[in-house]
Amino acid sequence: MITLHQVTLGAGSFVLRDVSLEIPAGSHTVLMGRTGSGKTTLLEGICGLRPVQSGTIRIGSVDVTRLPPGQRGIGFVPQDGALFDSLTVRQQLSFALDLRAWSAERQATRVQTLAAWLGLSPLLDRYPQGLSGGERQRVALGRALSFQPTVLCLDEPLSALDDDTRLEVCAILKEIRDRTGITLLHITHNRFEADRLADRILFLRDGHIEHLTPNS
């Protein structure tokens, strides 16, 4: 479970005050809101990419408020995937494993498993420049899942994709949740996407969280 208790954080002159919310473990929670409402700021705060001015963030029973991003056990997929320009797909998938000093065989096995699952096996030796939008997002998902995090944070991962690719990545997100039991926190503007994937929809309005019912 992700628990935010009266969290205040800011981005430049914008400040999000006293946000409290709970995201149950294993749920797919979608966070919606108008442009500029602070969705990404909140997500960055949870990931540790933006300092929290006050309040606490817990993942399970661990207070992660002051932990660096890499120690929170959160996989992060930004809107454009933000793949590393200079690394092949294989290197992207093993990046976090290498940092954790996994053995070469263990890394190779994990990369093969992820690649087979996400349909990336023929692309392992390609660089990001040679990938389509959907392929890039699948690599970004694989990279975020590689170290088996407890939480996956997605910042509008489908917004730049065409309709067919969007459906394809939606199916992958559903499968990820079913197969791993990971907690997903997913920002989107698209209500169709939210209804299709979420079991909880949160709406950020004027710094307050409102709960919406999916498929309503």
Partner: peptide, 18 residues
């Protein structure tokens, strides 16, 4: 350079120097 790349690297376990 897209600063998101650096942020993703941090979430994957890098410190700033790495």
């Amino acid at each position: 350079l897209n600063p998101r790349q650096e942020q993703v690297a941090l979430t994957l376990g890098c410190n700033r120097s790495q």
